[in-house]
């Protein structure tokens, strides 16, 4: 008899958070991210039926089928998952939403919707699985490809990249992180922290495309990212349901308290980076580009910003669940309106 698998705080095993087998290329960065999404939700002990998974179109956007089988999924159209997410969130704000997009899906066709999602601060985890190319259409450069990065064919990219993290901060995003598919420890902590955030949490994850963009000269390859990754801090996440206190040397750790009582613990490196400082975040991102650095970690967080649900002033019960007695005004209301029109 095999031992029962370990379970989380709601009695589910890791398997209960898995999805269908992946059909992506072996070694694709996106699969590594999927594994951390599964782990993050398992460790958070989220009720799978209260999660909605959304995506656009691309190899990356296929991945919601590969995690959280017990959650409703919505694989939408290319670049327009943000609008769908906005509608879902209005209909049922009790759902935890996780959106997976690609760099093509977000930075090209979907740039407008991405901007407005962030601007509205629709509460969701928004992951960009960033490989610098359009994987699904066979390797064309995307708008996040670095200037001078080399395509498989040898062609050099001639346009500057759009930095989605910098853009998100500019648009008022309240949670901005950058990570790497090859850094599971940091990624899972970021994902969990994003799950506690009330607002749009953008995480740009460098996720190498092993088939079209993993060669010498590419700035989105495993080798390049591994060599270049510079974490801004050592990122830890302490959920509200297991508050453990660890003694740190004074001044070596910055704690950010989240809405649900969870905490992000940022252990400082020699950089001494404060992610609550918006201006510094922008400057850091700009400098990183100039210096060809690959900085990862929690770039910016602002726990005070109102989310879209609060702004829209809807009641506690999700709109989707309201009974006719609430959604259809009484006959007297119609009579009154008619009398005014006579």
């Amino acid at each position: 008899m095999t031992a029962a698998p370990p379970t989380n705080r709601i009695g589910l095993s890791l398997n209960d958070y898995k999805g269908a087998p992946s059909t992506l290329c072996d070694g694709c960065g996106h699969d590594a991210i999927t594994a951390q999404i599964i782990k993050a939700f398992y460790e958070l002990g989220t009720e799978p039926h209260m999660v909605a998974k959304l995506s656009g179109i691309g190899c990356s956007s296929k991945t919601p089928a590969y995690f959280l089988n017990r959650s409703h999924g919505f694989n939408s159209v290319h670049g327009r998952m943000p609008s769908v997410a906005t509608g879902v969130s209005m209909a049922n704000h009790n759902l935890t939403m996780i959106g997976v997009s690609g760099d093509g899906d977000t930075a090209s066709i979907g740039l407008g919707q991405f901007c407005h999602l962030v601007r509205r601060n629709v509460p969701m985890i928004y992951i960009v699985e960033n490989n610098g190319v359009y994987g699904l259409t066979k390797g064309q450069f995307s708008a996040t490809a670095d200037l001078g990065s080399k395509a498989k064919s040898g062609v050099l990219n001639e346009l500057p990249p759009i930095d989605l993290c910098g853009l998100a901060i500019e648009l008022g995003c309240s949670f901005v992180g950058r990570s790497f598919a090859g850094d599971p420890k940091q990624l899972v902590a970021l994902l969990k922290a994003a799950g506690s955030h009330r607002g749009t949490a953008v995480i740009d994850v460098i996720s190498p495309c092993v088939t079209f963009n993993n060669h010498e000269g590419s700035t989105k390859s495993y080798k390049y990212a591994k060599e270049m990754e510079t974490p801004l801090h050592e990122l830890g996440y302490v959920p509200f349901f297991e508050q453990i206190s660890v003694d740190y040397e004074p001044g070596s750790v910055q704690e950010v308290e989240m809405h649900d009582g969870s905490k992000i613990r940022l252990k400082k490196t020699e950089r001494d980076y404060d992610p609550t400082d918006e201006i510094n975040a922008v400057v850091t991102i700009k400098k990183a580009h100039a210096n060809k650095e690959f900085l990862t970690g929690l770039l910016y967080i602002n726990e005070t910003k109102e989310d879209f649900i609060t702004i829209m002033n809807v009641g506690d019960a999700p709109l989707a669940t309201l009974p006719e007695s609430v959604t259809r005004p009484p006959k007297s209301a119609l009579d009154h309106i008619m009398a005014e029109l006579m």
Binding site: V84, A85, T86, G87, V88, M90, A91, L319, T321
Partner: peptide, 25 residues
């Protein structure tokens, strides 16, 4: 007991409405 969203364009307006319809609104 309602939400009215002035979208950024009609691509988004229909996307939002579909998302909401899908989730039960």
């Amino acid at each position: 007991s309602f939400a009215v969203i002035q979208a950024e364009d009609e691509l988004a307006a229909i996307g939002m409405a579909l998302g909401a319809g899908w989730a039960g609104a």
